[in-house]
Nucleic acid binder design. Structure first.
Lengths: 211, 211
DNA sequence: AAAAAGTCGTGAAATAATTCACGAACGAGT
DNA sequence: ACTCGTTCGTGAATTATTTCACGACTTTTT
């Protein structure tokens, strides 16, 4: 279950690989080379081979990789067979978008329950997910371990504390707040304003084909 | 204008630094140490000092950094004085969320115009931004150089090609497609499904305080 | 005025990630 | 069978990033 040998940079690319292989599978393609993968995913082919090699010799020299075999391998590696339930905290603009977004499409994750502090939203269902009041968080979160946090920045830390109290071990944080958590809880930040600003900075200061 | 000396990892953190300093400024704080910044932003204090040092000696030994001075410096560095107009392509769930989201708050970027292929959306205004039909892209995009791409995956590459034809030089791509662009165009990908899946993978395979 | 405590800036070390480049193996064509 | 072209897997080199650790200097305290 524990696997510390895989570099983090590699681990971050695994879902990308998985989805792309899944697409190839659907298209009926049965073999693929690191070069083709590289062109499609914009990752250097040597990096792809190196990434795969951490899991063993998955390909054949002179041939490439068998799509189905590779896909099956990644399915196991990424635990695609078991579903991961997710709670959404904060049904604002972004939260609503996620409720309507079908994560499950290429993915084993699914938002099972949503919470908001606004009484006018409570009781409604958005994208088939029922919205509960945040006051009832503890009553409805069950043993869900993953949360998407799309609350106002002032609520980020208090809500995080409650989530952790309820047993959540992973948070995808869309608020600008850098939340504090115990070290057995994993947080990934996605800060949309920062991403946009960062893009602009790179455009102005890193001309041509850098990265 | 061109600045290739700054490591990319540093450049990605600049907007984060800027926003945090801005908050400190608003709070009326006039000095701050790398240690405090580190606690708040969850970035190692040595990394912060190193990052700042690429821009020169901005602090004082034994004292820390002057918030206003640092903020002013980053304002210039991040070109916060000039506004950057942005076009939004695709007014679906996610696109609508962005239109309602106020990027300008801590930021010099602003969505100026939006496009969608759905006639029922065209002509409406969402968050004060008028929605045009994508067919009229060329007529209404003007000389906007930055685009947020929130279209269905099948439209990603064709729309990218048109954006580039219209002079766009930077794309924030929220589609799962890895788009192909000339090497003077910068693309940053944010793939929400991948981020969620990645979080789950890290939770299961990288226990405790890794990262 | 001196001592103590704090903090930066940075050389150097450590760690992480990418990329090069090539031997070995395979498939296809003749 | 043999040759040619392809492609993996990986040692080694390179590049990028983080972290340590300490001298130099500032502020605060006594």
């Amino acid at each position: 279950m524990v696997n510390n040998k895989i570099p983090q940079a590699t681990a971050k690319r695994l879902p990308l690989y998985y989805r792309f292989l899944n697409n190839l599978h659907i298209q009926g393609k049965d073999r693929v080379s690191s070069k083709e993968l590289s062109n499609a995913m914009k990752v250097d082919s040597a990096t792809i081979r190196r990434d795969f090699s951490y899991f063993g010799a998955l390909g054949k020299k002179g041939y490439g990789y068998n799509v189905d075999y590779l896909l099956g391998f990644f399915r196991k590696t990424l635990d695609q067979d078991e579903n991961t339930p997710v709670a959404l905290i904060g049904v604002g603009n972004l939260g609503t978008a996620f409720l309507n977004y079908n994560f499950t499409k290429n993915n084993n994750t699914k938002i099972e329950v949503a919470f908001d502090a606004d009484p006018s939203k409570v009781g409604k269902s958005i994208g088939k997910i029922e919205v509960h009041h945040v006051d009832d968080l503890e009553a409805h979160i069950g043993d869900i371990q993953v949360a998407i946090l799309t609350v106002p920045v002032s609520e980020a830390q208090p809500m995080t504390d409650r989530l952790i109290q309820s047993g959540v071990k992973g948070i995808l944080n869309f608020t600008p707040a850098r939340i504090t958590v115990p070290n057995d809880v994993r947080v990934h930040h996605i800060d949309l304003a920062v991403e946009l600003q960062s893009l602009v900075y790179f455009m102005k200061h890193y001309p041509l084909d850098v990265e």
